[in-house]
Amino acid sequence: MQKNQTRKKIKCLIIFFLSVLNMGNTYVSKPVQPERILENGKSSMVLIYIIEFRDILCTPCSESFLDFSLSLPLEFQKENTWGIVVFEPGRQTNLGEKIIAKKVRGFMNGNQLHFPVFIDFFHIFKTLRTQATQLLLLDSTSLTVKKYDFPLTAKQKEAILLAVMESL
């Protein structure tokens, strides 16, 4: 009984978290209702990338991230994956929002990435930023959130992919 309540609470938190992502000016394209992901989606997992903008401009820096993303089943990529592009205020902001948005679009198109992506122009996620692109894995079955930094080790990649496959 208590476990069910906790699960419900976590679910609410996840929905709230995803709603925050969906609101306001960070929006770029393809809005997806978070409720639909959790209630109607096939997987109990949600994967959120915190993508460093400078990694987008650097092919070797994004290699591990791309390698992992493209290993995900297409349906999971479309339905259960989100991306948030973050960047350092200052130099990169000076590029202009439209240029940043266009480069993100080019990166997504060029790599055939099919998940919705948002750009954090207002630095809402600045406290989450590290030096690397990150992966947040939200699991509504085990009620856990795990965080990984790219580049992933082979072992990490294998474990995450296994968990994703099992959740389908």
């Binding site: 266009k102 679009r105 080019g106």
Partner: peptide, 30 residues
């Protein structure tokens, strides 16, 4: 332009005798 999808980060450019322009674009590997 800032809105279209013609160029994302062009690097190299050359032109043929007919005036066609060729570019390499590193962001979409093209």
């Amino acid at each position: 332009s800032l809105e279209d999808d013609l160029l994302f980060q062009w690097v190299g450019v050359t032109v043929d005798l007919l005036g066609n322009i060729y570019v390499t674009d590193t962001l979409d590997y093209s």
